[in-house]
Simulated scan of single mutants.
Amino acid sequence: MKSRIKKSYICSDVNDYQINLNLIKSHIPTVGDIAIFEVLNIGKHSTIQGESTRNEKIMVGDHIMAAFGHRYATAQFEGYVPDKIQTEFHILGAGGVIGEVKSTNDKFKDGGPTRLRIIGYVTDSENKIINTKTIHSSQMLTFTGSAATQTKVVLSIGSSMDSGKTTTAAYVVHSLIKQGKTVAFIKITGTAYTKDADLAYDLGASISIDFSKLGFPSTYMCSENELLNLYETLLEKTLLCEPDYVIMEIADGIYQRETRLLLQNEAFVNSVSEVIFSANDSMAAVCGVQTLRSWGIQPFALCGMFTTSPLLIEEVEALVETPIYSLKGWDKEGATELITYSGINKSRRVESSQLFLEVA
Rank of each mutant, 00 (worst) to 15 (best):
F89C: 02
P82Q: 11
P113N: 12
I48Q: 01
S163N: 05
I58Q: 07
H136G: 00
S175E: 10
T308V: 12
G158K: 01
Y17F: 15
L327N: 03
E266M: 09
T322I: 15
I64G: 00
T307H: 02
S125Q: 14
N55D: 15
I5N: 05
T194F: 10
Q290M: 14
F216L: 01
I118L: 06
I10F: 02
G79C: 08
L262P: 00
F356N: 03
C287K: 14
F37M: 03
L262T: 06
V31A: 02
L302Q: 11
I135T: 11
R71S: 04
S206W: 05
Y9K: 05
K107W: 07
G69I: 01
D210S: 06
T168Y: 00
G304D: 09
F89A: 02
T142F: 09
N22T: 12
F306Q: 02
D110R: 10
F37Y: 15
G43S: 08
I28N: 14
W330M: 13
A94Q: 13
S206A: 13
K7C: 01
S3K: 14
A200K: 01
S8C: 15
L235N: 07
A67K: 03
W330T: 14
L176M: 14
L230Y: 06
G32H: 01
E126V: 07
H27Y: 11
S156T: 10
I207P: 00
I135M: 14
R115T: 10
N22V: 07
K6F: 11
Y80V: 14
H174D: 11
G50N: 14
G158D: 02
T336Y: 05
